[in-house]
């Protein structure tokens, strides 16, 4: 445990290839300019390389920590507490028509 590399000594992560960048951008729906791609990819390789040091840590049998507190899910009573808020909610919508949120035509129903 004491010979763990500190994050500063990390190498860029080669596994984050240019193709992986495009995959991540598609998954997260972010448009990237062609011009920014090389530098962005290099930066992300460094960041991922930096966090990769964790892989040397022995975590065998350790329960992942999703929540900082050992809480149980609170359950609420099945009661209607909200009333129609369409006008207020749609006041900040970019494009509505007939009470519907309008988006470019989706060719096929999912």
């Amino acid at each position: 445990m004491n010979n763990l590399k500190t994050p500063k000594q990390s190498e860029p992560a080669a596994e984050f290839s240019d193709a992986e960048l495009l995959r991540a951008a598609h998954l997260t729906r972010l448009a990237l300019d062609d011009g920014e791609k090389p530098e962005l990819a290099a930066t992300l390789r460094r960041i991922i390389g930096f966090v990769r040091v964790l892989q040397e840590l022995d975590t065998e049998g350790v329960e992942p920590m999703v929540h900082p507190l050992d809480l149980r899910l609170p359950l609420r009573a099945d009661e209607v507490t909200e009333s129609d808020m369409r006008t207020e909610a749609q006041a900040c919508a970019p494009d509505v028509a007939k009470g519907l949120y309008r988006v470019p035509r989706v060719i096929e129903p999912a």
Binding site: F16, E20, L21, R23, A24, A25, L27, T28, L30, L40, T43, L44, I47, I48, V51, L54, Q55, L57, T59, V62, E63, P64, M65, V66, P68
Partner: peptide, 30 residues
């Protein structure tokens, strides 16, 4: 940058090695 890294560490093939690993390390740290 963070959205891209975050989407990627949760994605197929990297989830265990990055996300789960980090959550386990988080437990050890706690």
């Amino acid at each position: 940058r963070r959205i891209l890294v975050g989407g990627w560490v949760l994605s197929k093939g990297y989830f265990d090695a990055y996300y789960l690993k980090a959550q386990r390390a988080r437990r050890l740290l706690a």
